[in-house]
Simulated assay, not measured.
Amino acid sequence: MPRLVGRAKRIPVPEPLQSLALGPRHLSLLSYLLFDGALTVNELAARLEVAPTTASLLIGELSRKGVLERREDEADRRRRIVTIAASMRPAIEQWLSRGAGAWRGALRDLTPEQRQLFVDTLRAYERGVAGEEPEA
């Protein structure tokens, strides 16, 4: 596991993103938007497992840097839809696509049951590192 994390950390940040001081908290948010498409603030908060106010602060920070765009949801004007800014998408894709491709390749030959076991194992590891009780 340390080797896996070490290699992922060595993936170079593309030049257009280097001055933005992006950290792990930004990486998760950008990954969700890149791979799942536009999401609401509440959807992002749920996926990141943070409060909506925390997600909103992260989104605001990245919006001010020109990385993200927020727009009103046409179906519900109270909701905001968040997307990656078109000008930043190529650099973010370059940065994150190697990891996504590696996961797809690693999981490609597994059955759905084997993939689920793998995901469940990673989640159990995450809970253990966090000091949480194992699920029954």
Rank of each mutant, 00 (worst) to 15 (best):
D36N: 14
T83S: 11
L107G: 06
R71L: 05
A100N: 06
L33C: 00
E15F: 05
L33F: 01
M1S: 14
P16C: 02
H26T: 07
Q116I: 07
I84G: 00
V129M: 09
R115C: 13
L96D: 03
L96V: 02
G105F: 07
F118P: 08
A75Y: 15
M88N: 00
L107F: 10
I84H: 03
E74C: 10
E113Y: 02
A106T: 09
L22S: 01
P24Y: 08
Q94S: 09
L48K: 07
K65W: 04
S31A: 15
L57E: 14
A130F: 05
L30H: 02
G66E: 08
D109V: 11
D73C: 13
G105T: 09
I92Y: 01
M88G: 04
D76W: 08
D109M: 13
E113W: 04
R80L: 12
R25D: 09
V50E: 02
S28C: 10
S56Q: 06
V119C: 07
D73V: 08
P112Y: 11
A38Q: 11
A86F: 07
P134K: 00
T121S: 15
E49D: 12
E93L: 05
S31V: 13
R64V: 09
Y32D: 01
R70Q: 15
D120S: 10
V82T: 01
N42C: 13
G66K: 09
L62M: 06
G60S: 07
A51E: 14
P24R: 11
L62K: 00
L34N: 07
L117S: 11
V41G: 00
E61I: 03
E132H: 07
L107E: 09
I11K: 10
H26F: 03
P2L: 14
R3S: 13
E43D: 15
A51F: 09
K9C: 11
Y32W: 10
A38R: 11
R89D: 04
L27P: 00
L107T: 15
T53P: 06
V67L: 01
Q18R: 14
A100R: 07
S31F: 11
D36G: 09
P2S: 14
R89C: 01
L96P: 00
R47C: 04
D109F: 12
S19A: 13
T111R: 13
R3F: 13
A100S: 05
P24L: 11
M1F: 11
V82C: 02
E113Q: 09
R70H: 08
V82S: 00
R47Q: 12
I81Y: 01
T53I: 15
R64T: 10
E74D: 15
R71Q: 09
L110R: 14
S63N: 06
S63M: 03
E133I: 02
S31K: 09
A8N: 08
L30I: 04
R115W: 07
A45L: 03
R3L: 15
G66I: 08
S97Y: 00
T40E: 04
P2M: 13
G128P: 06
L20H: 05
A46W: 07
T83P: 03
R104W: 12
R10T: 15
E15W: 02
A21I: 07
D109G: 14
V82G: 01
E69H: 06
A21G: 10
L96C: 05
D120K: 08
W95K: 04
R80K: 15
T40M: 02
K9R: 14
E126C: 08
S97Q: 10
A136H: 14
A38H: 08
K65D: 04
